[in-house]
Computed example of a mutant assay.
Amino acid sequence: MSETPQVAYKVLTAPQMAQLEADAVFKGAPVDLADGYIHLSTEAQLAETIDKHFAGQDDLHLATVDLAVLGDAVKWEPSRGGQLFPHIYADLPLSAVLAYGPLRRDEQGAIVLPVAS
């Protein structure tokens, strides 16, 4: 079995990103609130998540989340195709976000991950 990633990614709309910055906490998108946890994706899962759940949306943002900071609030659970996805059973504090920024893709269409400034 492969090693569990130490970081995961949350895709946010511009208003959700602004709310995270203003309140220093993110309580979840409508789908998160409905499901009872905040959905995250690993780097390997990210492109498919964006293409499937955010197709056609502009002004998206990515937050890099330090899973170790969240401790036991993170549960790895099967989802799309049986893959294990990280889910947060708590609010996402800004203090657990290592980097964030607008969703960008390079010339080949690959996602450019945010880097801490």
Rank of each mutant, 00 (worst) to 15 (best):
R80P: 11
A110G: 12
V65W: 01
T49P: 11
A29H: 07
P102S: 13
D23C: 09
D72H: 12
Q83F: 11
Q19I: 04
R80M: 14
P102C: 14
G82A: 12
V69H: 15
P93I: 03
D35L: 15
A55I: 02
L20Y: 06
A90N: 11
R80V: 14
V74D: 00
P5C: 08
A14R: 15
P78D: 15
A8T: 06
T13F: 01
G101D: 02
A47G: 05
K27R: 07
H87K: 01
V97E: 11
L113R: 00
M1H: 08
S95G: 04
K10F: 11
D91Y: 02
H87N: 09
Q16E: 12
W76F: 15
G56C: 06
A99F: 08
L20C: 12
E107W: 10
Y100E: 09
V69L: 11
E107C: 13
S41F: 01
V97F: 08
S41G: 08
A99Q: 08
P5V: 02
G82E: 15
A99K: 06
I38V: 10
E48S: 08
V31P: 03
A68E: 00
L20W: 09
Q108W: 01
V65K: 09
L46I: 05
A44Y: 05
D91W: 03
A73C: 09
V7Q: 09
A34I: 11
R104S: 13
T13C: 04
I88K: 07
G36S: 08
D58Y: 13
Y89P: 09
Q16W: 07
K52S: 04
P15T: 08
K10I: 01
G109K: 01
A29G: 05
A63P: 00
K27C: 13
L67T: 14
A90Q: 00
P78N: 04
I111A: 02
G109M: 06
A99R: 00
E77M: 09
K52Y: 01
G28I: 01
D32L: 05
P86F: 03
H53I: 05
Y100M: 05
T13Y: 02
A47V: 03
V65E: 10
A110V: 10
L33C: 12
A63I: 05
A14N: 14
A44G: 08
V69E: 06
Q19H: 13
